[in-house]
């Protein structure tokens, strides 16, 4: 019996999964399929989308960044302190935060590309460092009551649509354009697909790696702004754990763990798959910790599926 070829459906698998989950949860809870709940799901996940897009740059380039969670923790604390403790103008505080995040990503990029440590270990180590610095700076304090202007980021609306949704939309559209229309995007895919080949093609692989981690750092910082503005409070424990959700969402959304593949719409669908599961499980009263387990299972399942697809492709290439 020939193996079923599902690679053509690949693009839409995530969407099918998303729809299936929505149908499932609309049966388990009457509150799930209400406009209000669905709007909530979207609003609560704008910053996850931005982080996941950032992480996708790194993953498509064949790397990984486990430090985004503690990048958020550090950037959030510094931005909040700039506003609340030092009373800097909002634009300056946001600028500092964004620059800091970009800098943290840059550091990751330099470490990964020049010391050439396996990115998982390198970013695990930098995340411990970021965590330490974050707690040192915040002295484990919680900061709240941001200036009105900063809250506008998530409370302001244009044509009835919250700013942060528009922001996420802009990030998504820009990233899609970068991936599909620019040389940078194509080089990134080439780098992730086969680093040696990319190098021989004349792609400056070191510079590309620094660039993708820097982009990830910038977008992570942007997401941090949304996260702390939405919460109107922050401390050093805000952010950690995001890396796991973003990573899982990216893999569920078809961004290959081995690099070289990924599409932004599927990635967004991946974020919503996780969001819907979280929301649905909460409405069904299954508790927060059960979500740990489901997320772990989903991560393993998605990676396994990814690997299965690769094997299919490899076999087909051999067959030719």
């Amino acid at each position: 019996m020939p193996k079923v070829d599902i690679s053509g459906l690949r693009k839409y698998t995530v969407l099918f999964i998303l729809l299936g989950l929505m149908v499932f949860f609309s049966f388990t809870s009457p509150y799930f399929l209400t406009v209000r709940n669905l709007t909530n799901i979207v609003i609560q996940n704008t910053y996850f989308i931005i982080v996941a897009v950032g992480l996708s740059f790194v993953m498509i380039g064949g790397g990984i960044d486990l430090s985004v969670g503690y990048q958020m923790s550090l950037v959030g604390v510094i931005t909040a302190m700039a506003m609340v403790v030092y009373h800097l103008p909002v634009w300056l505080a946001v600028l500092i935060g964004l620059l800091l995040g970009t800098g943290l990503g840059f550091i990751n990029g330099v470490i990964v590309s020049s010391i050439r440590i396996f990115p998982l270990i390198a970013t695990l180590a930098t995340s411990a460092v970021f965590q330490g610095i974050s707690y040192l700076v915040s002295k484990a304090n919680t900061f709240r009551a941001y200036p009105e202007q900063f809250l506008l980021l998530t409370r302001g609306k244009v044509l009835g649509i919250p700013f942060d949704i528009l922001l996420a939309l802009v990030v998504v559209v820009l990233a899609s354009v970068v991936y599909s229309e620019t040389t940078f995007g194509r080089r990134l895919m080439a780098l992730g697909g086969n680093e040696e080949a990319a190098r021989l093609l004349g792609i400056h692989t070191k510079r590309m790696k620094v660039a993708m981690y820097t982009i990830c750092g910038f977008l992570t910082a942007l997401a941090t702004m949304v996260m702390i503005s939405k919460a109107n409070t922050t401390n050093s424990s805000f952010g950690p754990g995001t890396e796991f959700i973003a990573l899982t969402a990216a893999i569920v959304g078809g961004v290959s763990f081995m690099g070289g593949e990924g599409s932004v719409p599927a990635l967004v669908a991946g974020v919503f798959v996780l969001a819907v599961i979280g929301n649905g499980m909460q409405l069904a009263g299954w508790g927060t910790y059960a979500q740990f387990i489901v997320r772990g299972l989903i991560l393993l399942g998605a990676v396994a599926f990814d690997e299965y697809q690769r094997n299919l492709q490899r076999n087909r290439q051999k067959g030719c």
Partner: peptide
């Protein structure tokens, strides 16, 4: 404080 240990440990690991 404990937080220093994280910074040191991370650096040492790298």
């Amino acid at each position: 404080p404990d937080f220093y240990q994280n910074v040191v440990k991370g650096t040492v690991l790298l």
